[in-house]
Design a protein around this nucleic acid. Structure first.
Length: 512
RNA sequence: GGCGAGGUAGCCAAGUGGUUAGGCAACGGUUUGCAAAACCGUCAUACGCGGGUUCGAAUCCCGUCCUCGCCUCCA
């Protein structure tokens, strides 16, 4: 068994993963701020770290996976005010949408999914600890409200994650004017409310709410303790969010070592080489993509690139709708793998207890029996999912070739028995490889049904019309009227329906 | 300005010193009444540019051009 190596932002190098407690892995990932529906960029870390967690578990680790939901935040307050809604009502509405979008993408629910609003006592206690040991101070605002700030210069290791020098930060800092801060670099742990009816919670410093970074320090400590194994999130969180998390948590636990041993950061989605973002307006949401494509195809797209690099996400606007060529391509691959799984399952039926010895199948056996280990090795190499997908592709190809061979030589009972046994192994290897990637979670039938339904809708077709034309063509073929049959085929093809004439009649499917 | 990522065949994308990445598109073939699917083959001795180290470099070193990100809310 190979061993897992991960790129650690803290050391800027790939290093062997060594869990604090052998056999256990504690992972914390920064979840979304639920002020709006997630866009496709927000979903990347969910997929990336879902694969990490699956891989850790497949390697025999007991994994505790925490991904928070930030439901208290300036953006939420602002958006809620715009809509005349209570902040917590807004976030309570958005959180389930996020969860459903991620579930559709094949992301398993985290072990714990804490909310800021349910962690207030822990946050207040953490802030109080930092005030008590001199890492933070209370500042009176002109309005009479009291804020609490973290004193950045009091923390010796500040900048170690993002490799920033405090003094250089200060020069280039675009810092909001705030006279109550002792140093422009200091950041808020607690924001006091200026009026009593404002949104907030009671605290030793009056009514208020947590600053942006403190929540994650409190929530990770609550469920994982100080000094857990892996902390993940998007690259834009390195500074200031994760830098500040480190400062707060390590200042609150002096002498207890680093907050997390490994820091992992995923790259962004790019549209036309620019970062996908709300402010640029160049974003699409998973729920938009699900109109055109299967969620599993979108997941395939995320996995087709190594997680640290940028992922270029293409979209093209047609007259009537937006299409996603990359997702379309991925969906054809998903189709292919589901179809392969189906064929293998059929071929496996002829498996029999025979001693192996079919020389002509030896090459297939090599590919099939080596595949799962190659997937593991790829994931061990800092989650090299593109290579893992390549292995899946090679396994599927060998599987199809095996099935072709068995169909061609269906009279050879011994070969069928040996080949069937091989098909059983191929099916297991393929399933297991896809499982660790979180792909192909449903049955081929269910997938075919839901994609057919969606593709018909997208193309404005209905089953009755298609079926009628197919029936007409079947009759024409039976009457050897191939000219008429070909006209009907061409018509269907033009509308996006592909036909496959087989021994068991004519099958059809709608193109992506 | 500081820190960081990247430029690999028509397109997407692995690979960090020597032996096939993989996929898509295109074209040719096996199969088929014709097709589709599947499979085989071609495109593919490609690695931004210029030097250097080496028996050997996409991979290491120096220089250089370009793209993008973070430094302000951001996955």
């Amino acid at each position: 068994m190979s061993s897992l190596h991960l790129y650690n932002t803290l050391t800027r190098s790939v290093e062997p993963f060594v869990a604090k407690v052998p056999g256990e892995a504690r992972v914390y990932v920064c979840g979304p701020t639920v002020y709006d529906i997630a866009h496709a960029g927000n979903a990347r870390p969910a997929v990336v770290f879902d694969v990490l967690v699956r891989h850790l578990a497949a390697k025999g680790n007991r994994v505790t996976y925490v991904r928070n939901l930030t439901d208290v935040d300036d953006k939420i307050v602002e958006r809620a005010r715009e809509r005349g809604e209570e902040p917590l009502a807004l976030s309570a509405r958005m959180a389930p949408i996020y969860q459903a979008d991620m579930r559709a993408l094949g992301c398993a629910a985290p072990t714990h999914e804490p909310k800021v609003s349910e962690t207030i006592p822990e946050i207040v206690a953490l802030v109080a600890t930092l005030v008590a040991n001199g890492s933070a101070y209370v500042a009176e605002m002109p309005s009479g409200a009291r804020d609490v700030y973290f004193s950045v210069r009091s923390f010796e290791g500040y900048g170690k994650l993002s490799r920033r020098q405090i003094d250089e930060l200060e020069v280039g800092a675009r810092v909001e004017a705030n006279e109550s801060k002792r140093d422009p670099l200091d950041f808020a742990l607690w924001k006091g409310c200026s009026t009593d009816d404002a949104f907030g919670w009671a605290s030793p410093w009056g009514k208020g709410r947590p600053g942006w970074h403190i929540e994650c320090s409190a929530m990770s400590a609550k469920f994982l303790g100080h000094g857990f194994d892996i902390h993940g999130g998007g690259m834009d969180l390195i500074f200031p969010h994760h830098e500040n998390e480190i400062a707060q948590s390590e200042a609150a636990h002096p002498g207890e070592g680093p907050l997390a041993r490994v820091w992992m950061h995923n790259g962004f989605l790019n549209v036309d080489k620019e970062k996908m973002s709300k402010s640029l307006g160049n974003f699409v949401r998973p729920c938009d993509i699900y109109e055109s494509n299967d969620p599993e195809a979108l997941r395939w797209v995320y996995l087709s690139v190594q997680y640290r690099g940028p992922l270029s996400f293409d979209l093209e606007k047609t007259d009537t709708r937006v299409v996603y060529p990359g997702v379309d391509e991925a969906e054809r691959r998903v189709d292919y793998v589901y179809a392969t799984l189906d064929r293998l399952h059929a071929a496996a039926a002829s498996a029999d207890d025979v001693e192996p010895g079919a020389k002509e199948l030896a090459a297939f056996a090599r590919v099939i029996d080596g595949a799962r280990k190659r997937v593991e090795a790829a994931l061990d190499d800092d989650l090299n999912t593109p290579v893992a997908l390549a292995v899946v592709g090679e396994l599927a190809k060998a599987s199809n070739e095996l099935c072709d061979t068995l169909e061609k030589r269906r009279k050879d009972a011994r070969l069928l028995a040996v080949g069937g046994a091989l098909a059983v192994r191929a099916e297991v290897a393929l399933r297991s490889s896809l499982d660790v990637l979180g792909l192909l979670h449903t049955t081929a039938e269910a997938y075919a049904e839901r994609t057919r339904e969606r593709r018909l809708r997208v193309r404005g077709l209905d089953v009755a019309t298609v079926s009628a034309k197919i029936a007409e063509r079947v009759a024409a073929r039976a009457a050897k009227d191939f000219a008429r049959a070909d006209v009907l085929r061409a018509e269907l093809d033009a509308s996006g329906v592909e036909l496959a004439d087989g021994k068991d009649g004519t099958q059809w499917r709608v193109r992506v």
